[in-house]
């Protein structure tokens, strides 16, 4: 008995040690990555770097076209994916029961979430670039990104819609509103912060995406003038700088810009989520 208890205690100590070790590993990994990139890169970010054209294939100069290109791609992706995503989520949360249609839609969304980004790239290349004749352009890249972030927006919005208290709907229906009036004027506004969170997560994902963009948006270093122009996104620019050994310094600076962008996205998401929670608790209090 005593032996047993002692071995149990040893086991517990070991397990606890492993758990703390793991947590420290994760924290260490993140800070190591951030520190390595930012300590080499932040010093190189100047106004000139952000606002000028790259020179000598990116060895010198700035990243203005890539910033503009990324912004265009992300804007198009969100403009397409957000409406479809929100409507899909509304349908899944409010209208579809446990029907076969719903199961098919959910399976598709899950599949879409799992499809490797390079396969999205292949598809975008075959369908948008070649079949639809959009060439390498913002249009092709943005649409490919839209397909990729659709599941993110659907899932987050659906969660948000489902977490709207049931009484809201009952009150609205009891006042004589129709189902759609209830959904559009009561449920969706109440779920808005959560839906916005989903959109921001989608933005974060499309800012960092590379593989899908590589095969659909081209890699032009010029400033785009129309939606049919090719662009080189920040992430692709970073990949080309590093993998072709163009310039590690510029790579660090570009990577730092990307990390700072993602940092902002996460910060905004967190603030929104916190706002949502306090609002919900406030609503529950009275």
């Amino acid at each position: 008995m005593k032996m047993q208890r002692r071995s149990l205690r040893i086991e517990e100590t070991l397990v606890k040690a492993f758990i703390y070790f793991s947590v420290i590993c994760v924290v260490f990994a993140l800070f190591n990555i951030l520190w390595h990139i930012l300590s080499h890169g932040v010093g190189l970010i100047t106004w000139e770097f952000i606002s000028s054209y790259p020179r000598d294939m990116g060895r010198a100069g700035g990243i203005l076209p890539s910033i503009v290109g990324t912004a265009c791609l992300v804007a198009l992706a969100v403009a397409v994916a957000a409406p479809i995503g929100i409507l899909t989520a509304t349908y899944l949360a409010e209208y579809a029961g446990k029907s076969g249609v719903m199961r098919a839609v959910r399976f598709s969304i899950d599949t879409l979430a799992g499809v490797p980004s390079i396969v999205f790239g292949l598809f975008g290349f075959a369908f948008l670039v070649i079949f639809c004749g959009f060439r390498w352009s913002i249009l092709s890249g943005g649409l490919t990104l839209a397909f990729m972030i659709l599941p993110v927006i659907v899932r987050t919005s659906e969660e948000a819609i489902k977490s709207v208290p049931y009484e809201y709907r009952e009150c609205s229906l009891a006042l004589g509103a129709t189902k759609w009036q209830t959904v559009a004027r009561v449920v969706l506004p109440a779920a808005a912060p959560g839906i916005v969170t989903g959109i921001i997560l989608g933005i974060g994902r499309s800012v960092g995406e590379t593989a899908a963009i590589m095969l659909t948006a081209g890699s032009s270093l010029g400033l785009p003038t129309s939606i049919m122009d090719p662009v080189r996104s920040l992430s692709l620019h970073l990949y080309i700088l590093v993998s072709e050994g163009v310039s590690f310094e510029m790579g660090y600076a570009t990577a730092s810009v990307l990390i700072i962008l993602i940092f902002c996205v996460n910060l905004i998401t967190n603030l929104l989520v916190r706002y949502m929670i306090t609002k919900r608790m406030g609503a529950g209090a009275h």
Binding site: V26, I33, F263
Partner: peptide, 22 residues
């Protein structure tokens, strides 16, 4: 701890690759 995991999820894959490479 949670924001750390979120940030880990948000870092672009190329940035991971760059870090890994070096």
């Amino acid at each position: 701890f949670r924001p750390i995991i979120e940030l880990l999820a948000g870092i672009p894959t190329v940035v991971y690759g760059f870090f890994g490479l070096i």
